[in-house]
Design a protein around this nucleic acid. Sequence first.
DNA 1: CGGGGGTTTGAGTCCGTTCAAAATACGTGG
DNA 2: CCACGTATTTTGAACGGACTCAAACCCCCG
Lengths: 258, 258
Amino acid sequence: MNPTAPRETPEGSACTIHAGESCLTCAWRADAEWGVLSDEDLRRLDAARSFNAYRPGQVVYTQGHPALGVFCIESGEVLLRRTDEHGTAAVTALVPAGRALGYRALLGGVPYEETAEAASEARLCFIDRAMVRELLDKDCRLGHRFFRRVAEDLTASEQARIDMATLGVRQRFAHFLLTLKDRRGRVDADGSILLDLPLARQDIASLLGARPETVTRTVRALEEDGIATFDGRTVRIPDLDALLDELEERSGEPRHQR
Amino acid sequence: MNPTAPRETPEGSACTIHAGESCLTCAWRADAEWGVLSDEDLRRLDAARSFNAYRPGQVVYTQGHPALGVFCIESGEVLLRRTDEHGTAAVTALVPAGRALGYRALLGGVPYEETAEAASEARLCFIDRAMVRELLDKDCRLGHRFFRRVAEDLTASEQARIDMATLGVRQRFAHFLLTLKDRRGRVDADGSILLDLPLARQDIASLLGARPETVTRTVRALEEDGIATFDGRTVRIPDLDALLDELEERSGEPRHQR
DNA sequence: CGGGGGTTTGAGTCCGTTCAAAATACGTGG
DNA sequence: CCACGTATTTTGAACGGACTCAAACCCCCG
């Protein structure tokens, strides 16, 4: 269950930079859980946190290890990978910048439930468990915010389960592209949308609950239908409406009752 | 989104019984979230709560309605049914006795995310939102307990997603039977295990992420292989090991990395 | 006794998988 | 900077599990 021993500090040898943004001026302050804290508490948070840069693929924390603290994604995206008791591994989420990581394990008092690794170049803050606990005790609202976040995650996970049962791979992939578009989509000179896939094909497949071969074929099919063109990890979407139409066509859907 | 107007009291016309178990002597006290409360608080909880009986299929609360409070399942089981924005309905969980219901919406400050209906004959407690809030404010540990519960639910939901992608219907069904066995399994005179299915075939299918026809065929296949026999809603499992073996055979499993 | 929903059964189809091999991308050391 | 070995991605062909559709069946209830 616990292949390697726990460590004292965040894993990997990412260099610690003390020059990171202040929590008070953080771009994500409004959305982040910490946003409920007073300026004074934020300053204490500021002083206590450390700041690290990660290269793509670098592990942030490992499933099964005791939770050392909470991470915040300042920039980049982080992949969550879970291995169950049968040894089956799957990507469970691609977490966007601005969100916290590892709070579930820390607040729940359990080891990390998944391995987190940087999907792209990423910069993360790390807040030690002692500081988190302290802030949590001081201001109950912080706990509420984290509760809300988990509740949202749960809703999202249940929706993913429904989609898995209801939608085909093509539709799930289209949905994934739209999510990416909202996060990191750019508009090209000719008006078409550009975005980069932050994941290897394999990991996209795992996230979608499909095999890599199927993803490849789906990509080709979308290209042949003029929905999108793929060049390496860059995707071009000439007509957003065409992609949106993909989601509507729910082929064989269970009759919704009442 | 909100088909009917919210109501003042728990839905349906279940008769309120004041003679229910006291929270202090509740069989689930040790497991339940309220277990962290002091005897004094438990007495206040006792006084404030109401107690209702539900017939199978009766709605406890409805998706989209504002959260009025938290329910506790004293006996019986409750089905959670979720309808997404496309109108696709799916059973998301079968909640066993001893667990709370509706806390996610209430604590998260959002409307109920799903419709809850009694799967079997059930007896539930209802705790008004005002009382929940009061206890929550007074004792932070209660909030922690609920956080833990949602975190566990999330882990379970993610596992279900993985199972959906990895396992066949037959294995998912076998897994479902084993869950039921742990909850409500009895041992017959001849040593075989007996249990009742608390759900209609349709709902089992939905919970498993399959069609009713497929469930029927799976049932037949299990009977032909001597794993279990089905008589209406009663299931007989002559050899538990044979059923357990079903779970091991993960046919085409994604190579687990590292 | 005649609905009516739920369940079962059958036949045919399709989507996604499996397996195997070729092609491409990638990182590393020379 | 190029050559090489490895990992990933792509392609092809064949298979199979679960789905669709449609009809028959059943049981419960009025």
